[in-house]
Simulated assay, not measured.
Amino acid sequence: MEQFILTEINEHRQALDAVLAQLVPVIGEAAKNVINAVKKGNKVLIFGNGGSAADAQHIAAEFTGRFVKERRGLPAIALTTDTSAMTAISNDYGYARIFARQVEALAVPGDVVIGISTSGNSENVIKGLEAGKQIGCYTLGLSGRDGGAMNSLCDLNIVIPVNTTARVQEMHILIGHILCAAIDNEF
């Protein structure tokens, strides 16, 4: 059991090392763009599937509530929380449109649309990002592996260059927390 646990921790460390070696400037660029949008009065829309849906909710809650510092609530919506909208859209338009339809309804030019997909290829995440792009939103991706189809759709796609879904998700929430800390420092 101890060896198993050490292997898991070492995989996490390797993913973290990849983030440190390759992604610090990219995360900084993402933080600046999110901060600039919020300062201009725009909002953040976040979405993903499964664990990425939970991450979307987690990050949105840190914006609207607070992360560490006491500050005013900031506009962020996880598009994964309205079960009535999600089931109606799925029923009427198909599951692939659950995020795109909500982005069409809620986004305005200048908003930030954050799509989270460990593979970078989730169809509904891709369609949500496409909808944001068409509206004139800043599109930010959190993906893994090689970034998948999200590479060509996002203004900036933060790709965790590992293949293990759990390690990608662990880095995604770290990056989400870094974005929240950067927001705290500005507001």
Rank of each mutant, 00 (worst) to 15 (best):
Q3K: 14
F4P: 10
E11H: 14
H12F: 15
Q14C: 14
V19F: 03
V19I: 10
Q22Y: 13
V24E: 10
P25K: 07
G28W: 03
E29G: 03
A30I: 00
V34N: 09
I35T: 01
V38A: 05
K43W: 09
V44D: 00
I46P: 02
F47R: 00
G50C: 04
G50R: 07
G51V: 05
G51M: 08
A53F: 09
A53R: 11
A60P: 12
E62C: 05
E62A: 06
T64W: 06
V68A: 14
K69H: 08
R72K: 14
L74W: 08
T87P: 03
I89E: 01
S90P: 13
R97K: 14
F99A: 11
Q102K: 09
V103D: 07
E104K: 12
P109Y: 02
V112L: 03
T118P: 02
S119L: 07
S122Y: 02
I126D: 10
A131E: 09
L140K: 00
S143G: 08
D146R: 10
G147W: 04
G147P: 08
M150R: 01
S152D: 15
P161R: 10
P161T: 03
V162Q: 00
N163Y: 02
V168A: 06
H172R: 10
G176R: 00
D184S: 03
E186A: 13
